[in-house]
Write a protein that binds this DNA or RNA. Structure first.
Lengths: 199, 199
DNA sequence: TGAAATCCTTATCTTTTGTTAACGTTTTCA
DNA sequence: TGAAAACGTTAACAAAAGATAAGGATTTCA
């Protein structure tokens, strides 16, 4: 996929937040860069400050923590979604988790430095503030749902609703990663699946 | 507490996000209003769109869902914190949970309509976009930590870290609400407390 | 002030999850 | 291609959590 195509996908993907007219887009695009992660390559690691906010044009990544030497996967991002070690990127603090490509993954990237420059750019500033606000608000809503699921649902109920809303994820992501994401061990998810199949 | 005092507390409380100079503040303040919730009064209920974003100058509230006729408390907010049915307020969709005062609670409020006016105000716009962005980013970081706790920690570990970071909450909030917040039943939290005391 | 409601603990029993290990299948990659 | 790694399932046992009910203390509020 060449850069023009990726930029178009990016422009379309962020249109839910903010739309740039052609002259704004011309100012905007020089601030972005491109990268490809090979499978299993890390985009972010514990202890380092994350310098990029990304848009995935192809591929998938997982976010995981290491606790007692064990990897625990907390989240996934796929093509046409944003990806970053958000907290580290925003606060400029060392990252506390890892982000790793599950497949070969293509990225459109904005560095923190370039984002600051755009936030100070006379023409782009207001739109970029709004862009940042709407992205953050979007993720707050996602997080709200996710926390609500942990509070109000059992692991089995969370599995069932994932199965309903994103069945294809099971064809694409190893099941033991999904288990972590649901808040249980891989063994437990295997049992839940058997249980719910029988019912 | 009179309005002047509350406004000062508000101004100080949001200084972590954005600071207004005196002339900006003079434009800003007419857009805010005040309210008092008596104990057990609801600020937000399921099915209604939340029209206000608030700053608590005194008191405390809990956020809860009703599932199978049972109330499940998911979060709390206290004085000098922001409070809103955020998702409903932002998306203008019916709220899916309840917010109720745990004590008599004083609020400084901004209506959605007034917020939109400020976002269109020539002088305030940029600062308000930034304000909104920084608030949202702040809450994203909070949510990130909360989800991480559910993924990587057991209920007992979550209890222990709450006990470390916010011991005073146990003096102020009924324990069965805290149990829900930690993702367990009240009976289970009682057992966890006994267990961790003995160790 | 006194009855009702709220709240925490404890006990009992059931269900679910965690832990560890083993096994067979599939995938990976040198 | 072939050995190693990764993966999902199952079993067995231990630990934890859910559900329900009962009892006693505290708080609420008419």
């Amino acid at each position: 996929m060449n850069k023009e195509v990726q930029l178009e996908a990016f422009r379309k993907g962020i249109a839910q937040f903010v739309t740039f007219n052609d002259s704004e887009w011309e100012i905007f695009t020089p601030y972005v860069s491109f990268s490809i992660l090979s499978k299993k390559e890390h985009f972010a690691v514990e202890g380092k400050v994350c310098d990029y906010m990304c848009f995935i044009t192809r591929g998938a990544v997982r976010y995981y923590h290491i606790k007692d030497g064990q990897e625990i996967t907390g989240y996934f991002s796929f093509e046409n979604e944003l990806m970053s070690a958000y907290k580290s990127f925003l606060k400029r603090t060392p990252n506390t988790n890892y982000i790793q490509a599950l497949e070969e993954t293509s990225l459109v990237m904005i560095s923190h430095q370039n984002l600051q420059q755009m936030l100070n750019h006379p023409i782009l500033a207001l739109k970029m503030e709004r862009f940042g606000r709407l992205i953050a608000e979007y993720y707050i809503c996602c997080y709200e749902d996710r926390v609500t699921a942990f509070i109000t649902q059992s692991p089995e109920e969370r599995y069932i609703s994932l199965e309903k809303t994103a069945k294809d994820i099971f064809q694409r992501i190893p099941q033991h990663f999904i288990a972590n994401f649901l808040g249980v061990t891989p063994v437990s998810l295997s049992r839940i699946r058997k249980r719910t199949l029988l019912q």
